[in-house]
Simulated scan of single mutants.
Amino acid sequence: MPHEVRGVVALGKGAPVAVHDIIVPDPGPGEALVRVQACGVCHTDLHYRDGGINDEFPFLLGHEAAGVVEEVGDGVTDLAPGDFVVLNWRAVCGSCRACLRGRPQYCFNTFNASQPMTLADGRPLSPALGIGAFSELTLVHSGQCTRVDSAAPPEVAGLLGCGVMAGLGAALNTAPVGRGDSVAVIGCGGVGSAAVVGARLAGANRIIAVDTDARKLLWAKDFGATHTVLAGGDTDVVAEIRALTGGFGADVVIDAVGIPQTWQQAFHARDLAGTVVLVGVPTPDLRIDMPLLDFFSHGGALKSSWYGDCLPSRDFPTLIDLYLQGRLPLDRFVSERIGLDDVEEAFARMGRGEVLRSVVMLGAVIPC
Rank of each mutant, 00 (worst) to 15 (best):
L137I: 10
R206F: 06
P58F: 10
V253E: 09
G143N: 00
H47V: 05
L302W: 14
L292N: 06
G51D: 06
C310N: 15
L129Y: 04
L11M: 14
V365A: 15
V69W: 07
V355S: 02
Y323G: 01
A256K: 07
G122C: 05
Q105A: 13
D21C: 00
G158A: 09
A214T: 11
A91S: 13
A364L: 12
G169M: 09
W263F: 15
A152D: 07
G353C: 09
R270P: 09
F59C: 04
L61W: 04
G180R: 08
T262Q: 07
E336R: 15
S335E: 09
P284A: 05
A273T: 12
K221E: 15
L328E: 02
V276N: 10
Q261E: 15
Q325N: 10
G189L: 12
V85K: 08
L362H: 09
A231W: 12
V148A: 03
D55L: 11
P127N: 07
G178V: 06
A175T: 00
F57G: 03
C39K: 05
L292T: 13
D74F: 10
V257F: 14
L139P: 14
D213F: 09
C188G: 04
A10S: 15
H268I: 00
W219K: 06
N54L: 05
L129C: 10
R101P: 00
G52Y: 12
V279C: 05
G180M: 08
L217E: 13
C145A: 06
Q144C: 07
L340P: 08
R206Q: 13
L244Y: 04
A98G: 01
S313C: 06
N173P: 11
C145K: 03
R6G: 10
I186T: 04
G12V: 03
L125T: 06
G300W: 00
V334A: 09
D222E: 13
S95R: 15
A269K: 04
L362E: 09
G158T: 12
R90M: 02
F248I: 09
G249W: 03
G12M: 07
A65F: 02
V34K: 04
Q325D: 15
V191N: 08
E70P: 00
S304I: 12
E354G: 03
T77C: 04
W306R: 03
A128D: 05
G351H: 14
P25H: 03
P25S: 01
P291T: 05
R123H: 07
P153F: 03
P81T: 12
M361V: 14
R97M: 13
P260Y: 12
D251N: 13
V5E: 11
C99E: 05
A250M: 13
R103Y: 09
Y106I: 01
R352Y: 00
Y307W: 13
D271A: 15
C42G: 04
L129R: 04
A152Y: 11
L293V: 13
D26P: 11
A152H: 08
N109H: 14
D285S: 11
S126C: 13
V69G: 02
T138D: 13
D55M: 08
E71W: 06
S150E: 12
E240P: 03
A151M: 04
R357A: 09
P116A: 01
G247S: 02
T275H: 10
G94F: 10
E64L: 01
P312L: 07
C96S: 05
F223C: 03
P367L: 07
V72D: 02
G339V: 07
R337H: 10
D289T: 14
L328C: 07
I207P: 02
C310S: 15
G94M: 11
M361Y: 00
